[in-house]
Computed example of a mutant assay.
Amino acid sequence: MKPTPCPSCQQPMVKKTFERLLHGTVVLDLCFNCQGIWFDEFESVQITPGGTIKLFELLHEHHDDQRTPLRDPLKCPRCSEKLLHGLDVAKHGGKFNYHRCLQKHGRFTTFAQFMIEKGFVRQLNPAEIDELSAKVGIIRCMGCGAPVDIRRDHACGHCRAPITILDPSAVEQALTRYQHAEVRRTTRDVEALGDAIVMREREKSRQKRMQEPENAGIIDAIDLLSAGAEFVWTLIKR
């Protein structure tokens, strides 16, 4: 598989595999030098909750790595066209930045912005920023690594990312949410499974009676145990 060049530093990105919703896997391209992720179209919403936790753990391992500020412009690794800056609102309410390809090849997101999107990182409100600015004048942007004078700015002047922190309570809530979602995704509904087995066996009996009209008056006994075992095995093999 051909390496994907980073939209910022143009160095080959590292490919990591994560489980995909429904079936299969998603291969993401990560640049630890720029702390960015390239998502081909729709990949960011195709990762399972368990895969999101795995990706968060990987990003957090490199959270304090020395990184290179993002270049301007950023280029699409598929068509080399300039990426367009975008702003969106996550399901939990936080705003996150990204850079997308106008040809719909995908989007580039920094580690910090991905963690905002998935609810692991909390944005500071104006009062919290004012309180922090009295103690620390300049901080490093979590989005691109550029310096931000929070005595004057409440967002990064380079990539426009908001001031954020890795809040332990936000991390705990996000991990709990994704863990519960993963359990629901991987746990079969016993009642629904039982109903499916009964309906399946009834349909088989009906078709059998239609093929053998001389036995129309005979009631077929449904072996739910063997039928259930066969049905569960079919699900497992998918």
Rank of each mutant, 00 (worst) to 15 (best):
residue 1 M to H: 14
residue 3 P to H: 02
residue 6 C to S: 05
residue 7 P to V: 03
residue 8 S to C: 03
residue 9 C to S: 07
residue 13 M to Q: 10
residue 17 T to Y: 07
residue 18 F to L: 11
residue 18 F to E: 02
residue 20 R to L: 05
residue 21 L to G: 07
residue 28 L to K: 01
residue 30 L to D: 01
residue 36 G to E: 03
residue 36 G to N: 09
residue 37 I to L: 13
residue 42 F to N: 09
residue 42 F to L: 11
residue 43 E to K: 04
residue 44 S to K: 08
residue 44 S to F: 05
residue 47 I to F: 02
residue 49 P to N: 03
residue 50 G to A: 07
residue 53 I to N: 04
residue 55 L to D: 00
residue 57 E to K: 12
residue 57 E to G: 08
residue 60 H to C: 06
residue 61 E to C: 06
residue 61 E to L: 11
residue 61 E to K: 13
residue 63 H to N: 12
residue 65 D to L: 09
residue 67 R to N: 01
residue 67 R to I: 05
residue 67 R to M: 06
residue 68 T to L: 13
residue 69 P to N: 06
residue 70 L to E: 09
residue 75 K to A: 14
residue 81 E to K: 10
residue 82 K to E: 15
residue 84 L to R: 15
residue 87 L to V: 15
residue 88 D to H: 15
residue 91 K to V: 13
residue 94 G to M: 05
residue 95 K to Q: 14
residue 97 N to S: 14
residue 98 Y to G: 03
residue 102 L to D: 15
residue 102 L to F: 12
residue 104 K to T: 13
residue 106 G to E: 00
residue 108 F to Q: 00
residue 110 T to G: 10
residue 116 I to H: 08
residue 116 I to F: 09
residue 120 F to I: 08
residue 120 F to G: 04
residue 122 R to Q: 08
residue 126 P to S: 04
residue 129 I to Q: 01
residue 129 I to K: 02
residue 132 L to W: 04
residue 133 S to Q: 01
residue 134 A to G: 11
residue 135 K to P: 07
residue 138 I to T: 10
residue 140 R to A: 13
residue 141 C to A: 01
residue 145 G to V: 04
residue 145 G to E: 00
residue 148 V to R: 02
residue 150 I to P: 04
residue 150 I to F: 05
residue 150 I to D: 07
residue 150 I to W: 08
residue 155 A to C: 13
residue 156 C to V: 06
residue 156 C to F: 01
residue 160 R to N: 13
residue 161 A to G: 15
residue 165 I to F: 10
residue 166 L to P: 06
residue 168 P to S: 05
residue 169 S to W: 12
residue 178 Y to M: 08
residue 182 E to G: 02
residue 183 V to S: 08
residue 184 R to T: 10
residue 184 R to F: 06
residue 187 T to E: 05
residue 188 R to A: 13
residue 192 A to V: 00
residue 192 A to C: 01
residue 200 R to F: 12
residue 201 E to Y: 07
residue 202 R to I: 15
residue 204 K to F: 09
residue 207 Q to H: 05
residue 207 Q to E: 03
residue 208 K to C: 05
residue 209 R to H: 11
residue 209 R to M: 12
residue 210 M to A: 12
residue 211 Q to I: 11
residue 211 Q to R: 14
residue 215 N to P: 11
residue 217 G to Q: 08
residue 223 D to V: 06
residue 228 G to Y: 01
residue 232 V to S: 10
residue 234 T to E: 12
residue 237 K to P: 00
residue 238 R to A: 10
residue 238 R to P: 03
